[in-house]
């Protein structure tokens, strides 16, 4: 099947710029960080669209992450001066994941002072740690190979969780965060759809006030 450039555009024939908000716009409008559920959702949705829409793009700013009305999340091209070089080419999947992890963390950290740190739930912190490839610094990435007596399936599961190498790995971890993994596509799409709708509502309200 042919893949469109913007996943959000698949929802309607006439999807325009007003049907998407960048993560940066969302952060600025609320003037506060995203919550943890939104972070899981943006992560899952973004990896979903990255899986379907290649070539890989490194995420340089929250302005590139676009949340669409229908709850899909896509990555806009980097408009920076070096876009077309680092933005598109010679960029591996793990590099894209790393950059996405950093952007998601920054969205969770939005507005906090340099000497402050947000307390994240351990699973989300672990996800970002693994995405951003910062795990070795805290010594917690032991690859899980000490469990030689464990079954192969368990070992394989551990390997998958300890080493993120693909968008699919990220999505699996996001799905595992839910009580019912099979609900991940609908749930995370609904969270992103709500994020878009609530931000639009706030925007309309603030515009009226002005």
């Amino acid at each position: 099947a042919e893949t469109p450039l913007e996943p959000g555009a698949t929802a309607g024939a006439a999807a325009g710029p007003q049907d998407a908000l960048s993560l940066e716009e969302i952060l600025r409008l609320y003037n506060q960080p995203i919550n943890e559920e939104q972070a899981w959702a943006v992560c899952y949705q973004c990896c979903g669209s990255l899986r379907a829409h290649r070539p890989p793009r490194r995420v340089r700013s929250a302005a590139q992450v676009r949340v669409w009305r229908d709850g899909t999340v896509s990555l806009a091209p980097d408009a920076g001066p070096d876009s077309g070089k680092m933005g598109y080419s010679h960029c591996t999947e793990t590099e894209v994941i790393e950059s996405l992890g950093i952007i998601i963390y920054k969205a969770l950290d939005y507005g906090l002072k340099e000497n402050e740190e947000r307390e994240l739930s351990p699973p989300l912190e672990q996800l970002i740690d693994r995405m951003a490839n910062t795990v070795e610094a805290d010594g917690s990435n032991d690859e899980g190979y000490e469990a030689a007596e464990e079954g192969l399936e368990e070992e394989e599961e551990k390997r998958k969780i300890s080493a993120i190498r693909s968008y699919r790995d990220v999505m699996k971890l996001c799905a595992a965060h839910l009580s019912t993994e099979s609900e991940a596509p609908n749930h995370y799409q609904a969270v992103c759809r709500a994020l878009f709708a609530e931000t639009k509502e706030l925007h309309t309200f603030l515009t009226k006030i002005k």
Binding site: Q32, N35, E116, E117, R118, E125, I128, A132, A137, D138
Partner: peptide
């Protein structure tokens, strides 16, 4: 509803914020 509720702690040298900062 819709509010981000989170705890803030002092930034730690070995915390995730420091590790992310080193990457950027």
């Amino acid at each position: 509803k819709g509010k981000s509720l989170y705890k803030i702690k002092p930034r730690h040298d070995s915390g995730i914020k420091a590790k992310i900062s080193m990457k950027t």
